[in-house]
Design a protein around this nucleic acid. Structure first.
Length: 289
DNA sequence: AAATATATCAACCGCAGCCCT
DNA sequence: AAGGGCTGCGGTTGATATATT
């Protein structure tokens, strides 16, 4: 294939995005919608390659993105999903509609991997003493999240972790919020359609039978999901877009059949884990702190 | 206070696969 | 059916922030 594409063109800017660039990109997408990234730098005059524009949008500017620390629930879900799916960050991100795959990947690499390694050093029982941190006992890890989820650690608030004093524009979530303020109100990712929902997160159609779900797990889910799960709101993307078309292109649809079974298992499994006894959880939770 | 080490995360790179012609 | 273009994904890098000495 003819690689390198636009990104090695002379004059293509790299490095952190400026507020000006963000504003241009946001207002362009506001008008034209996401997708057709090749045309974005052409039409906006941004000295960025199409890839860079898409990445900036999907990982940072897209409305509905939650930034800041991960909650214990999210943490547990990521660990659980990672143990099921492996490093399929996009697939994992589809279960955490407010988080980007990049965020999850970073969080895994910088936090969770270490915690798991630490835990495996501390306990020699659960797994078959693998040195691979991804080969973690999901029961242990997910239970940790439920241990903490009852009384949310104030450190794991939804507030951005970025410090306002940061000199870097790119890391200021407040700037991004400002850009998007008054433009969109609802998180775009998820829109339930019927009681027997085929919920869609980033393109994975997740059939959730709320009746059969463990009540506690329902609460967990509610907490993890954006308000749109609870109250139907007009989609930001209008008719063009089921969330499956967040980037103007369907994602994951071809993976639906295998994932459906997986999701059922996941939901069952997660629901069961909610019931883990506090004592059991306590016995292992200190390993992560 | 300065130097150094470590942690964090935005952004980039390159491959794979889908879509269109 | 084949080839090229475009997009999405996962791994990695590098700049910046923070902690430690």
């Amino acid at each position: 294939m003819g690689r390198s594409q636009c990104c090695d063109k002379v004059g293509i800017k790299r490095g952190p995005w400026t507020q000006e660039e963000d504003t241009i990109l946001v207002s362009y997408i506001q008008k034209h919608g996401p997708g057709n990234w090749r045309l974005v730098p052409v039409n906006t005059g941004l000295m960025r390659c199409s890839k860079s524009c898409r990445l900036r949008w999907t990982n940072y500017l897209r409305p509905g993105i939650k930034r800041g620390n991960f909650t214990p629930s999210e943490e547990g879900l990521i660990i659980h999903l990672q143990s099921l799916l492996g490093n399929k960050w996009a697939a994992i991100a589809s279960y955490l509609p407010q988080r980007t795959d990049n965020d999850i990947k970073n969080y895994w690499n910088t936090h969770l991997k270490k915690k798991i390694e630490k835990h495996q050093l501390a306990t020699s029982g659960c797994t078959a003493a693998s040195s691979d941190p991804t080969n973690v006992c999901p029961e242990l890890m997910i239970s940790r999240c439920h241990n903490n989820s009852g009384s949310e650690n104030p450190c794991h608030s939804d507030l951005p972790s970025s410090d306002l004093s940061s000199s870097s524009y790119a890391s200021s979530t407040h700037n991004i919020s400002r850009l998007l303020q008054g433009w969109t109100r609802c998180p775009p990712m998820v829109k339930p359609t019927a009681p027997d929902q085929h919920l869609t997160c980033h393109g994975i159609h997740t059939k959730v039978d709320r009746e059969s779900c463990h009540p506690l797990f329902n609460e967990e889910l509610k907490r993890l999901l954006p308000p749109a799960w609870e109250e139907e709101q007009p989609s930001f993307y209008g008719s063009q877009s089921t969330p499956a078309c967040v980037d103007g292109k369907k994602r994951f649809d071809t993976q639906n059949p295998p994932l459906a079974a997986l999701e059922n298992w996941l939901l069952d499994e997660a629901a069961r884990q909610v019931d883990l006894s506090v004592g059991y959880i306590d016995s292992i939770s200190h390993a992560f702190t």
